[in-house]
Design a protein around this nucleic acid. Structure first.
Lengths: 344, 344
DNA sequence: AGATTTTTGAGGTACGCACCTCAAAAATTA
DNA sequence: TAATTTTTGAGGTGCGTACCTCAAAAATCT
C-alpha cells in the first residue's frame, strides 16, 4: 500500500538496485530488454520518484536568475518583491534566486548581463524585457548553452524561450474593452487611450484587443488615437489637457500602462475627477487606493504572487526536464473592482 | 554560504548533535541555558530545517480527509476533482487525501462519519457543509481529539474550526451587485433573484451584499424577493415563469446558487433568451458555455484549483503546527466574463 | 564528601535516492 | 573455443534529518 521504492522495483523486475538506478537516471550500459523490463515494473507498481529524497541525495540546488528592468515602476517593484518572497518560501525546494536589474532603456546591457551568466551555475533564467534583436540573440545563446529561459509578465514570442508565464495581453485588452463598453452605458461617446509608449508590444496588443471589442460590440463608441506619455508626468499632463479641450463627448479613459497617478492629478486640477469611467491595468498601491476611492472603476491585472511562484515552478521543472502542469500554471486575467479587491 | 545544517549549529553552539536535536524537536532533558545557546546559534546562522529531509527521516505521511456533500452539483463535483488532483500533485509532499461524500440533506450522517474517523490515522479534516448544531458538536469533538479542522468553500463561523479557505460570500454578493448595477445601465428596473434555498448561509450573505450595493449605489433598481427553487428544475420553471408574468420592468437576473441550466431552458422556452443581464456564481461547464455563448454576462467565482491546493497546504501546516502564509492562502473573488475565461 | 539526579555526548540506524567502484556474469566477437 | 566486450550485481557512501541507546560528565542534593 505504501509508495513503492526503488527496492520494490528491483525485486519486481528481478534485477539489482544498480540496474534500476541506471534505468531511472538514464545511465548507459543497460540492455534494451532490461530497460523495458524495469520500466514495466515501474508502471506496474505505479512508482513515482520521491523528488524530495532525490534532490536530497543529489544535493540539488536550483540556481535561478530573474532579470527585471529597473524602471522603478510600482508594477516591476511589486513583481521583484513577489519573486523574492516566492524564492524565500521555495527555499525548502532548494531554490536560490538571484534578481538582476538592468537599465530599462538599454537592451545591450541586459544582453551583456545574460551573456556573462556562468552556465555551470545557472539552471534557469526568467526574463522580463521588451523583445529586441540583441535580446533575441542573448536568449538564443543561453538556450544553446543549455540554460532554460522563460519570459515573465510580457512574452517574447519570436524567441525560442521555453515558456511564457503571464497573461495574454490581447485578451486583457478585450476584457478592458468589454468592461469599458458596459460601464459607460449605451450611446455615443469617445474613449481616451493613454500609454507610456506604443512601441511596447504589450500596449499594442492591449489596444488591439480593446479596439476589436469596442468595434464589434459597442460600435457607438469611438476610441481616440493613443496618447503617449513616454513615462513623463509633464508630457501626460500636457497631452491629456490638450485632448480634453477638444474632445467633447469623452466618456471613458483607458490607461494602457502606467500613468494612473499623473492622470489622477491632472483630472483633479481640471476639476474633472469622477467624470469619466476609468479602466486601467496592474494592481499597484496607487491603483488600489484609486479603486477604493472610486477614482478608477476597474483594473485588469494578473496576480503577481502567482506569477512569481509559477515562474519558479516552471523553471525548476524545465531544469529537471520534467513536464509542467499547464492548468496550474495558467494565470488568470483578473478583473478588480472596489468590491473584490484583495486585502493588504 | 550553503545552508547551515544541524551539524553547523552543534559546532556553533559548542554542543553535540544530540543536544541540538533535542532542542529542535522539543525533547526534554536539556538545561534552560543550553536551549538558549542552541537557539541563539540557530538564529545566528539563520538555520532553517530542511523539511524534505525531516519528513523523509520521520516517514511523515499527512493523512487528510475531505468531506463533501454528494449533492451532485457541478460545483461540488469540480471541487472534488480539484481536491483529488491537488492530492495527486501533492503526493511528493507525502499527502494522502481521502474524499468522503455524505448525503447532502443529512447532517447526522456527516457527523457520524466524522465521529468515526480514527484519530491516530487522521491528521486533518477539510469540511464543506452547512452549519448545524450536530455539525458544530462534531467539529468540537474532532478538535478535542487534536485533529485540525478547516472549512472550505463555505465557512463555519460559529464553530472553532482552525481556518477557513474560501471567499467572503458577502463581498462576492457585493461584487455581483456592482456588476449588475453597472451592466444594466441607469434607469429604473427590477432584478430577479434566484436561489436554491435561502436557508443556506452563503445564499443569505450573497443576497445581503448584493442588496447593500444596489441600495447604496443603484437606488433606481429594485431587487425582488428571492425565489427559491429547492434544487428542483420544475419548481424553478414554475416560479420564474410566474414571476416573469407579473414583473414588467425586469432587467436583470441574479442567480445566487445553482439553477443556471434550468433558468436558461426556461428563458429559451419563453423566448426571452438575451433579454436580461444575468449574473451568477461558480464556474461550471454550464456557466462556462453560457458565458461563451453570451447567455450569462458575468460569473463570480473562486478558483477551485487554488482552493484545493490551499486547503491541503493549510492542513499540512496545521498538522505541523506551523504558521500559514496568509497572503498566499487568501483566495480572490474572481470576476469572469467571456473575455477573460480561462482555457479548458 | 559522597550519593543522586540531571544533562550531555558519542554513536548508531533509518528514510529514499544518487552516484561510485569493482568484480562477476553474460553476451558477442574472432 | 577462446578472447573480448557488454551488461549486471553487490556493495559502499552520502545527502539532512529523526530518533534511539548507553555511558560519561556535570550539576544538585544530602
Amino acid at each position: 500500500m505504501a509508495r513503492p521504492t526503488v527496492n520494490d522495483i528491483a525485486r519486481e523486475a528481478g534485477v539489482s538496485l544498480a540496474t534500476v538506478d541506471r534505468v531511472l537516471n538514464a545511465r548507459p550500459g543497460v540492455r534494451e530488454s532490461t530497460v523495458t523490463a524495469v520500466q514495466e515494473a515501474i508502471t506496474r507498481l505505479g512508482y513515482v520518484r520521491d523528488i524530495a529524497a532525490a534532490n536530497l541525495a543529489r544535493q540539488r540546488q536550483y540556481r535561478l536568475v530573474a532579470a527585471l528592468p529597473d524602471s522603478g515602476s510600482q508594477y516591476v517593484e511589486t513583481l521583484a518583491c513577489a519573486l523574492h518572497d516566492a524564492a524565500q518560501t521555495a527555499a525548502v525546494a532548494r531554490t536560490e534566486l538571484q534578481i538582476l536589474r538592468y537599465p530599462a532603456e538599454d537592451p545591450h546591457s541586459l544582453a551583456a548581463l545574460l551573456h556573462a551568466l556562468p552556465p555551470a551555475e545557472t539552471e534557469g533564467v526568467a526574463l522580463m524585457a521588451p523583445e529586441t534583436p540583441v535580446l533575441r540573440d542573448a536568449v538564443k545563446a543561453l538556450r544553446e548553452k543549455g540554460i532554460p529561459v522563460i519570459a515573465i509578465g510580457s512574452d517574447l514570442p519570436n524567441t525560442d524561450r521555453d515558456h511564457f508565464v503571464g497573461i495574454d495581453s490581447r485578451a486583457a485588452g478585450r476584457t478592458a474593452g468589454v468592461l469599458m463598453g458596459r460601464f459607460v452605458g449605451r450611446g455615443p461617446g469617445q474613449i481616451l487611450a493613454l500609454a507610456e509608449s506604443m512601441q511596447l508590444r504589450d500596449a499594442i496588443e492591449r489596444r488591439h484587443g480593446f479596439d476589436a471589442v469596442i468595434q464589434a460590440e459597442f460600435p457607438w463608441l469611438e476610441v481616440l488615437p493613443t496618447l503617449e506619455t513616454h513615462g513623463s508626468d509633464a508630457t501626460l499632463r500636457a497631452v491629456v489637457t490638450e485632448r480634453l479641450r477638444h474632445a467633447t463627448g469623452l466618456r471613458g479613459i483607458y490607461v494602457l500602462g502606467s500613468g494612473h497617478r499623473a492622470l489622477a492629478a491632472t483630472l483633479a486640477d481640471l476639476g474633472l475627477t469622477g467624470r469619466f469611467t476609468i479602466i486601467g491595468h496592474e494592481l499597484t498601491p496607487h491603483t488600489r487606493r484609486a479603486l477604493q476611492g472610486g477614482q478608477i472603476d476597474a483594473v485588469i491585472t494578473q496576480n503577481l504572487g502567482h506569477l512569481a511562484r509559477s515562474a519558479l515552478r516552471v523553471l525548476r521543472a524545465k531544469a529537471d526536464r520534467a513536464p509542467i502542469d499547464a492548468a496550474q500554471e495558467q494565470l488568470r486575467i483578473e478583473i478588480l473592482i472596489r468590491e473584490n479587491l484583495p486585502d493588504q
